[in-house]
Design a protein around this nucleic acid. Structure first.
Length: 874
RNA sequence: GGGGGCAUAGCUCAGCUGGUUAGAGCGCAUGCUUCACAUGCAUGAGGUCACAGGUUCGAGUCCUGUUGUCCCCACCA
């Protein structure tokens, strides 16, 4: 047998353990009619992605749930995959091309895509390898990609179905345009931030008059596209101007003054320039008043030919010149500093321009409704449930989804236009010629929003629209684990897509987690440079430590701070487990370890087994509720405090003693409890538990495939375990006494106990003496028998007296007892207060009342004993 | 403007459907070279659970309001 090293050193075994799992096909999903399926879809990371702390937390949570369910006997599918991330990837590749001095247009679509695939082959797998480092136990043999054949077929089918029902349409509407990426964006892909800018007040002359209307704007260049000025119909200041004509400065266009409720009389000057082609509100006003749309921007953010003298200039250069020109003409009334929210491209952070453009949209209202209902009816449940409200809030206010992107990397829109008859054809299979007139066809140039394919992930990866065996067995999936920031992008869209295409919700549970922040509570971000690389942490502390640190002390849905101290604490715990195992193995060496059944168990054995059972129940329940943090806390508490600090210490006299049977029993219990503890811990810390499991004499196979421990009523020993707590309490009391008088720990004391638990004490005598640092324990009838200079304490087993001679300071002892007396008297008063309340006795559960009575008795007894002792000290 | 979170020990945070004396980790204090572990052990100090009302026999927990703080969405040109 291999020897375990003295300290936990994860680097020594993590990779080998992972390889072992792979060799044994431990992650493989199998269709097994005998078993209940349990399916989790991994949120596919972008192929451009690097593993960050957010992933680490998300993956860890999924892996915990998945390993737990696998051990419980479910047939688990954890489906991995990557997302083509059309915009992010194309952006990266375009940038790489720029280094080479080539544009994508020069390359052409075909060559560009060839390069993109090469790029994907080269870098796309990186994140997959990183996930393995974390211990992710997904079925890699099923690794999917949003642009692979199966997923692409699903995209085509989904598009076709919506198109057929008129739920996808093409139209000219105001969309968000990124001049850098040169594509349209969905509303969700625009991030707003407060930017410092200006308010420029411009005078627009009234035609054939000396009068002006003063308007305020934050984007002066858009005046080139103004087609009206609007005022509120109730605004007396401007009533006489409604219907009049203004002459747009610099341009010379004649534009009307219109009255519209949209205008806020209180804000600015109460008169608003209207640029229907470049502002969503103005667009609406324009529609109402039949105003022309004049688009003044090119796709790259420069002014187009509509801008006259300003044509060809960058939008900001044009802005500068327009302000200067207005000032020169005496039409700039004033300039004010002004902060306002400006939209930025989610990807490249460039300022987004709202502009009118012909794009493809998904009609959202009919899709949103069923998605809301499904959650209302609890077909899908959010954990924590407050996120349902956020989900509703999104869906209730949703606008049509702009799905076309002016990109090449992605799923091309499956629509063709006939060059001859102008027909628009959407088809499941690529058509060769126009089915109407036989004319030549030209496919739409655009690609679909990445999220259109991600939305299908829970079923596209299972082969939908084919009714594959996998789809039938594993769909709907069980739980989706993701961050709250992804609800609008993904959760929502999977919900309405799943319902629409499969008629079923895509998942029954949505487990939402928060963000991993830095030590100061700031969001980890590239620009701040405060991100911590999970791989580096794994390198230094091991994956298990990282995993544990990401789930302990974290409430579901709450943000958490990542600190090295937490990782260290987790590492220390795992080292503890490592050494506990080492201790057990050292003692088990060469011996046959008996199974737990049929052993002659002692009180301490029953106590630890009882605690184990309680822990099994609590951890199982917590995991079922997705309370991962609580589960981990309970488990750590049990393993460290109960098992290591108490049971292992208690076991030493038996292990080192002469009684062979007792030694054998203790060894059996140690091995049994350790093995179960490792199993409970395995979902959280898979590597180290697997490694240790391999050393244990009482196990076979791999822990990953072991049965999850079950609560066994026969092993619960509730009464005996409770009684044994008295032994622990006694030991603690003796230790406390020794510390309180500065008695050196090595100095053995004589314990006198006034109490009844003689049997319990005698059975555990050697443990008590060892752990309390005592030479003898003796029962007495009264405190006087213990002698003069004693320190006393009331504990669960009774009252104990420790003669400590010169160390005893009678004054201090008296003061301590008096303090204790105050506390106990307070407790009695509290209990009396409760019990004398008739309402309490009548309405509270009987058990509670009984407990309160018992407590009162206990404290009364304590009080009596303390008073006696005080009297003895007089 | 709409929606949501948070406020508990010096720090970071747990506390499930209300029910013993409110917990953990870190930090702090004191003491330990006990043959698994100093990545450790023992003992201890430290909390008016933001504030004000209310419901209840009983509130850290539920309700209302206040204050502070953070986030998301919308957005007044």
């Amino acid at each position: 047998m291999k020897e375990m090293q003295t300290t936990y050193n994860p680097k020594e075994f993590e990779d080998a353990v992972y390889a072992l799992w792979m060799e044994n096909d431990c992650f493989k999903a199998k269709i097994d009619p005998e078993k209940i399926p349990f399916t989790v879809m991994m949120p596919p990371p972008n192929i451009t992605g690097q593993l960050h702390m957010g992933h680490a937390m998300d993956e860890t949570m999924q892996d915990i749930v998945v390993r737990f369910k696998r051990m419980q006997g479910y047939s688990v599918l954890w489906q991995p995959g990557t997302d083509h991330a059309s915009l992010a990837t194309e952006h990266k590749i375009v940038e790489a091309l720029r280094e080479e001095g080539v544009t994508k247009e020069e390359l052409g679509r075909e060559e560009f895509l060839r390069r993109a695939y090469l790029w994907k082959e080269r870098y796309g797998g990186k994140i997959v390898e990183q996930l393995k480092k974390l211990g992710s136990s997904c079925d890699w043999s099923r690794l999917a990609f949003t642009m692979d054949e199966t997923c692409s077929r699903a995209v085509r089918e989904a598009f076709f179905q919506l198109y057929e029902k008129g739920l996808i349409y093409r139209g000219s509407r105001i969309i968000n345009w990124c001049p850098d990426c040169k594509t349209a964006l969905s509303d969700e892909e625009v991030a707003y931030s407060e930017d410092r800018g200006h308010f420029w007040y411009f005078r627009y002359p009234v035609k054939d008059s000396d009068a002006f209307v003063t308007i305020a704007t934050t984007r002066p260049e858009t005046m080139l596209g103004d087609t009206a000025v609007a005022v509120n119909p109730a605004d007396k200041r401007y009533a006489h101007l409604v219907g009049k004509t203004l002459v747009l400065p610099l341009v010379g266009r004649e534009i009307p003054v219109v009255a519209d409720d949209y205008v806020d009389m209180e804000f600015g000057t109460g008169a608003v320039k209207i640029t229907p082609a470049h502002d969503p509100n103005d667009f609406e006003v324009g529609m109402r008043h039949g105003l022309p749309l004049i688009r003044i921007l090119n796709d790259d953010g420069t002014i187009n030919e509509q801008g006259g003298a300003y044509a060809g200039l960058d939008r900001y250069e044009a802005r500068k010149r327009i302000v200067a020109a207005m000032e020169e003409q005496g039409l700039l009334a004033k300039t004010e500093a002004h902060t306002h929210n400006v939209g930025h491209c989610h990807r490249c952070n460039a300022t987004v321009e709202p502009l009118v453009s012909k794009q493809w949209f998904v009609k959202m209202a009919p899709l949103a409704k069923p998605a809301i209902d499904a959650v209302m009816k609890n077909k899908t449940k959010f954990t924590p449930d407050r996120f349902a409200k956020i989900y509703y809030n999104w869906l209730e206010n949703i606008r049509d989804w702009c799905i076309s992107r002016q990109l090449w990397w992605g799923h091309r829109i499956p629509v063709w236009y006939c060059e001859k008859c102008g027909a628009e054809i959407c088809a499941r299979e690529d058509p060769d010629v126009c089915p109407k007139c036989g004319g030549a066809l030209r496919q739409d140039e655009d690609c679909l929003d990445t999220w259109f394919s991600s939305a299908l992930w829970p079923f596209s990866t299972l082969g939908w629209p084919e009714a594959t065996e996998e789809f039938k067995y594993f769909y709907p999936t069980d739980v989706l684990v993701t961050g709250y920031d992804i609800i609008p992008f993904w959760v929502m869209r999977m919900m309405f897509s799943g319902l629409r295409y499969t008629g079923k919700v895509p998942f029954r549970d949505v487990l939402i987690h928060g963000l991993v922040r830095d030590e100061q509570g700031r969001k980890m971000s590239k620009s701040l440079g405060n991100g911590i690389d999970p791989l580096e942490v794994i390198d230094r502390y091991g994956a298990d430590s990282l995993r544990l640190s990401l789930v302990t002390g974290v409430a579901p849905g709450n943000d958490t701070r990542f600190t090295e101290a937490k990782v260290e604490a987790s590492r220390n715990f795992l080292n503890k487990i490592w050494n506990a195992a080492r201790f057990v193995l050292m003692n088990a060496k060469g011996e046959k370890v008996p199974p737990i059944t049929g052993l002659k168990l002692q009180p301490a054995d029953r106590w630890i087994i009882s605690r184990l059972m309680t822990t099994i129940r609590e951890v199982t329940l917590s995991l079922q509720k997705y309370d991962l943090g609580i589960a981990a806390d309970k488990l750590i508490d049990f393993a460290w405090n109960d098992f290591c600090d108490w049971y292992i210490e208690l076991s030493k006299p038996a292990l080192y003693g002469a009684d062979a049977e007792r030694k054998r029993t203790t060894l059996g219990v140690l091995c049994f409890v350790l093995a179960d503890t490792l199993k409970l811990l395995h979902p959280f810390a898979p590597f180290v538990t697997e490694e240790i499991y391999g050393y244990l004499p009482n196990t076979e196979g791999l822990i990953i495939s072991a049965d999850y421990p079950r609560y066994n009523t026969k092993l619960s020993y509730r009464e005996e375990a409770k009684a044994f707590e008295g032994v622990i309490d006694l030991i603690k009391a003796v230790r406390a006494i020794k510390v309180s008088v500065n008695c050196p720990p090595s100095k053995k004391v004589h314990i006198y106990l006034l109490g009844e638990a003689k049997r319990l004490v005698s059975v555990n005598k050697s443990s008590i003496l060892r752990l309390a640092g005592a030479s003898e324990i003796e029962f007495v009838e009264s405190g006087a028998e213990a002698g003069e200079k004693t320190v006393s304490r009331v504990c669960e087993m009774g009252q104990l007296f420790v003669p400590l001679g010169e160390l005893v300071n009678l004054e201090e002892e008296r003061a301590r007892l008096e303090k204790e007396l105050v506390r106990v008297t307070g407790e009695i008063a509290r209990a009396d207060g409760k019990l004398s309340n008739n309402n309490f006795c009548a309405k509270a559960p009987k058990k509670l009342v009984d407990d309160e009575r018992a407590k009162r008795e206990k404290y009364l007894d304590m009080k009596l004993k303390i008073e006696e002792q005080l009297k003895a000290l007089q």
